[in-house]
Design a protein around this nucleic acid. Sequence first.
DNA 1: CGTCAGCTTGACTCATCTCAACTAGGGTGG
DNA 2: CCACCCTAGTTGAGATGAGTCAAGCTGACG
Lengths: 254, 254
Amino acid sequence: MVDRDAGHDHGHSEGGIDDSPVCPHGRSSGRCSGCQVRSISVCAALRPDELDALADIAVDVTFADRAAIFQQGETAAVVYNIIEGTVRLYRLLPDGRRQILGFLLPGDLLWVSLSERSSFGADAIEPVRACRFSREDFVALADAKPSLLKSLHAVATHELSLAQDHMVLLGRRGAEEKVAAFLLALRVRLGRLGRSQVTLPLPMTRQDIADYLGLTLETVSRCVSKLARERAILNVPGGVRVLDLAKLEALAAN
Amino acid sequence: MVDRDAGHDHGHSEGGIDDSPVCPHGRSSGRCSGCQVRSISVCAALRPDELDALADIAVDVTFADRAAIFQQGETAAVVYNIIEGTVRLYRLLPDGRRQILGFLLPGDLLWVSLSERSSFGADAIEPVRACRFSREDFVALADAKPSLLKSLHAVATHELSLAQDHMVLLGRRGAEEKVAAFLLALRVRLGRLGRSQVTLPLPMTRQDIADYLGLTLETVSRCVSKLARERAILNVPGGVRVLDLAKLEALAAN
DNA sequence: CGTCAGCTTGACTCATCTCAACTAGGGTGG
DNA sequence: CCACCCTAGTTGAGATGAGTCAAGCTGACG
């Protein structure tokens, strides 16, 4: 439990590389409207003119693989909308134990609990492109556009529901069940993004999965091997292929 | 894992006993403003005139000890504001395993994830008094009063943060640590309600605590006994007295 | 070609679960 | 009023799932 996944030690690199506006000083129309994740993110709630207002306060940023987006305890007054790549959210205990709270995929919103210091950290686990808003701008826009605020609320409610799923998983499921449920949930989310339902990319390490599921990396590895041995999945480089969906679903027990 | 806590079998009793408005057909002024939990609930965000609007759509209801407030899967189009008593929120797996998602205390908001079918159930674990709103009324009011909507959003954000605490607890803490952390968190919440910080009432059963912490009731019992043996707490009927706060905090390790 | 991070696998340990017996308090009905 | 029952809680002894420690594998990269 001590020299666990040194990934976040790469931190402080403040991965922002490209900090220029999407289309510097350009006209707004069409910027957000061409966004590939708009239809599945908060922005979907906005009318075209509101979208332009949003585009005016948006900055396109990228983070390198393993870059820290922000750290637990930091007061980051920003909101990100993930466009591409995967982000892990985590919370650290004082003694170094880590719990991964969730993985963010394109279309997901990453907000630092408005104005307080963040209770969690976030880093990129593959190259990430995101849309950044300053907290003030974003809040001002939300104040002005009730539809955005309602949409935000819907997002928060949805996240709460995901958090509840996660609690059940952590508190009341066995190791094998956890792994199966994790893969199935990922499958569904990728499906909603229009990605393959069969070959699941796993950009996170075993340690990440373990910290997400409340297990050790060895246990995760053993469970994955077991699933592969039983021909429920097939290990492929960088991910996993679902061979027997029904068997996986039976193992996940819901 | 089969005949666990039969409490929710008492269900379907639909505990609503007193369904009459707070002050039937009466004038509104002063109803909500005299509410003992107003200052700590969503309602705190409202101006006096808005409070009157709220009072007009509020219905005072009570639930008997062990009564189901609503059940998982049910489409309950309501929002409750807890005034008195304790409520447990739970989620059931198909095979009967239960995870308690949280305990609601006076001032907490109980909403059924607006308009969808509820992914969790709720029941009273002692006599409960609550303020009920129909979903439509509540949403309409939130639409009309942005301050209420923002307040709601703040509540959701706060709950998300609590859920994250809970995930860390479930995924990365040992049994003793879990029990200590549970007692400390309860202490803080009761403190905010102006209740004793020393004698903590525990209206929930050991099984409830176990299902909240992801343990078995025997393990909870053993941990409580151990804490008592070490003079960190003292078992008193219906609850627990905190003897050595520092020791408890050390055990909870945060 | 050597190194290193990520992953796998095995052997053993240990925390927690399971099963079971027992105690205490409260309510009920004969 | 007492005998009984029922729920909640406690405690012990033994079983077991997951953790720990350790060795070895593999592919990427300098």
